[in-house]
């Protein structure tokens, strides 16, 4: 293992391509959301494939894509999340794999057959600005590691070269169209008929999405009283409904409080698969009890840990 330095030049970076790590939990009381990847499992997998800690800083690629050139050194990367079209010097690669770039090599990631967000981890230490102890970029303010721009240079220290290999894409990393929800906290502000409609009908993702959230199209599910509620804490996965009956699901960079009623909250583990859907995709909601949600969360965590342990042992 040789310790050395690599430099990456960003040739093209679309909007919302940012530096991310596991985020900054515990600061919502100061108006700061967790941020971190849209698909949190993708960054964990990419890092684990390289023997890194799960939440180490990497690059999150949006549907707008990314093109890089290695201008110095040798750099091993891991790519996971979504089914992107990945190529090295014009030669197609697998969407999920460990790849080593030599000086002068170009790596391109574009939207492929499925998925919306992809994570790149590096076998080394990516230099990045931190804010409140984390690299995770808060999109609205640009605080943290920040969005990538064409012409920008990134430095990776203590690079390790690892053998190239595919990374298996587990079934639980595919897009998730059927979302488990716990009803509430404000389901009582909606009529029984509206709640039934919410749970029985199909919604579609719209093109109005960013790292803060995802607006839905579908049946009108306006609350009975279109009054706001006193602003209250929000979580990733909250399904909030505006007075005119339009639902949105909050994601990584969500506002920390809001006054729109929430008809339901999506199981946190399901939000990664939700992030990998595309505008126009159909989704539906299934109500589960809080006890069932805890049981599912534990079951999913066990399956994920099992997968990660296998990935790390290769």
């Amino acid at each position: 293992m040789v310790s050395n330095k690599a430099e990456i030049e960003v040739l093209e970076a679309g909007p919302h391509v940012t530096l991310q790590d596991a985020g900054r939990p515990g600061l919502m009381r100061f108006g700061v959301p967790n941020s971190g990847p849209m698909d949190r499992k993708a960054l964990t997998i990419a890092n684990t494939a390289l023997g890194n800690p799960a939440g180490q800083s990497g690059i999150e690629v949006s549907p707008a894509g990314l093109r890089l050139r290695l201008t110095r050194g040798t750099l091993t990367l891991a790519i996971a999340g979504g089914g992107f079209a990945v190529s090295r010097n014009g030669q197609a690669l697998r969407a999920w794999q460990v790849v080593t770039l030599q000086q002068g090599d170009e790596l391109t990631l574009r939207p492929g057959p499925w998925g919306s967000w992809c994570c790149l981890a590096v076998a080394g230490q990516l230099e990045a600005d931190t804010w409140l102890g984390a690299t995770a970029t808060h999109g609205l303010s640009g605080l943290g590691g920040g969005a990538l721009r064409a012409g920008q240079s990134l430095t990776v220290n203590e690079c390790r070269t690892l053998p190239e290999r595919p990374i298996p894409c587990p079934v639980f990393c595919r897009p998730r169209r059927r979302l488990n929800v716990i009803l509430g906290p404000q389901d009582a502000l909606f009529s029984d008929g509206t709640v039934a409609r919410f749970l029985s009908q199909t919604f579609r993702l719209t093109a109005a999405f960013d790292r803060m959230g995802q607006r839905l199209a579908g049946p009108n599910i306006a609350p009975e009283a279109a009054l706001g509620i006193p602003s209250q804490g929000l979580t990733r996965g909250a399904v909030q409904v505006s007075g005119d009956g339009i639902a949105s699901i909050l994601m990584a960079d969500h506002q920390t409080t809001g006054g729109y009623p929430k008809i339901a909250t999506v199981l946190l583990d399901d939000t990664d698969g939700l992030a990998q859907l595309r505008p126009g995709d159909a989704i539906s909601f299934t109500a589960i009890t809080p006890a069932k949600a805890v049981q599912l969360a534990r079951q999913r965590a066990r399956a994920f840990q099992c997968y990660l342990a296998q990935l790390a042992s290769h």
Binding site: P25, G26, M28, R29, P230, S231, Q232, G233
Partner: peptide
């Protein structure tokens, strides 16, 4: 415990 978010009349 992960965190608590105090607001006007609620604690998340």
């Amino acid at each position: 415990f992960i965190e608590a978010v105090p607001a006007f009349v609620t604690l998340l």
